[in-house]
C-alpha cells in the first residue's frame, strides 16, 4: 500500500469582535426569530379572516390536513388494474411474486374461463407491512396489471392483519390522479 497523504483544509475563520462579545449575536438571533413570528402571525391572522395572500402563514405544511405534492413517479400503494371489459388484467404469472425482494406477494392461480386468457389469479395477497416499495413488481409485470400509482401512501392500521391486502381490496382501488398533487405546481406553491 502506498502512502496516503491527507491534505488538511482549515475552513474556520477567526471570530469577529462582535461575535466574540456574544451578547450582540444573541440579540441578532432573537431578532430573526421574532421577526418570523410576527410576520407569520400577521399572515396567519389575515388568512384567518379569509383574506387571501400570495404568501402563506408559514413554510411548514399542516399535515395531515394538508399534503405535500407527490411526484408523478412516486410509488404509492399497489392496486390491480382491470381491462377494458373490467376483468382483472393479472394472469397470475407470479413474476412479481418471484421478483419481490421482500417476499410479500402471495399468489394462487387457477383457470380462466376464456382459453385465450387461460390463467388468472385466484388469490392475490400483498403484505403491505413487509413491502419495501421498491416497485420491482410493477417493473416486471408483463401485463401491466400491478401498478403503484394509486395515490395512497398512508397505509396504517391497528392490526397486522389489516396490513395484508387481499385480491378484492387490491382490485377495488383505482388510480386517482386527484390524489397526486402535481409536483411542479407544488414547487411553485412552495418555492
Amino acid at each position: 500500500m502506498g502512502n496516503i497523504t491527507v491534505k488538511k483544509i482549515d475552513t474556520s475563520r477567526p471570530m469577529t469582535f462582535l461575535e466574540r462579545i456574544y451578547i450582540w449575536e444573541i440579540l441578532r438571533g432573537l431578532w430573526i426569530t421574532n421577526r418570523h413570528f410576527v410576520v407569520n402571525m400577521f399572515f396567519h391572522i389575515l388568512n384567518l379572516f379569509g383574506i387571501k395572500t400570495k404568501r402563506k402563514g408559514a413554510v411548514t405544511i399542516q399535515y395531515p390536513e394538508e399534503h405535500r405534492g407527490w411526484h408523478r413517479r412516486l410509488r404509492t400503494r399497489h392496486y390491480l388494474a382491470r381491462r377494458e371489459d373490467d376483468s382483472p388484467r393479472c394472469v397470475g404469472c407470479m413474476m412479481c411474486e418471484t421478483v419481490c425482494p421482500a417476499n410479500c406477494i402471495y399468489i394462487v392461480a387457477h383457470d380462466h374461463p376464456d382459453p385465450n386468457v387461460e390463467k388468472q389469479a385466484d388469490k392475490f395477497t400483498i403484505d403491505m407491512g413487509k413491502c419495501v416499495y421498491c416497485g420491482f413488481c410493477v417493473e416486471v409485470c408483463p401485463e401491466d396489471a400491478i401498478r403503484m400509482d394509486s395515490g395512497h401512501l398512508e397505509i396504517c392500521s391497528y392490526t397486522r392483519e389489516d396490513m395484508i391486502y387481499h385480491i378484492d381490496r387490491l382490485l377495488e382501488q383505482h388510480h386517482d390522479p386527484s390524489d397526486y398533487k402535481n409536483h411542479e405546481e407544488w414547487m411553485e406553491e412552495y418555492p
Binding site: V91, G92, C93, M95, E118, P142, E143
Partner: peptide, 9 residues
C-alpha cells in the same frame, strides 16, 4: 408468446 400463463415457463 404467452410465457406468463405457460406452465413450461
Amino acid at each position: 408468446l404467452d410465457c406468463p400463463v405457460c406452465d413450461q415457463g
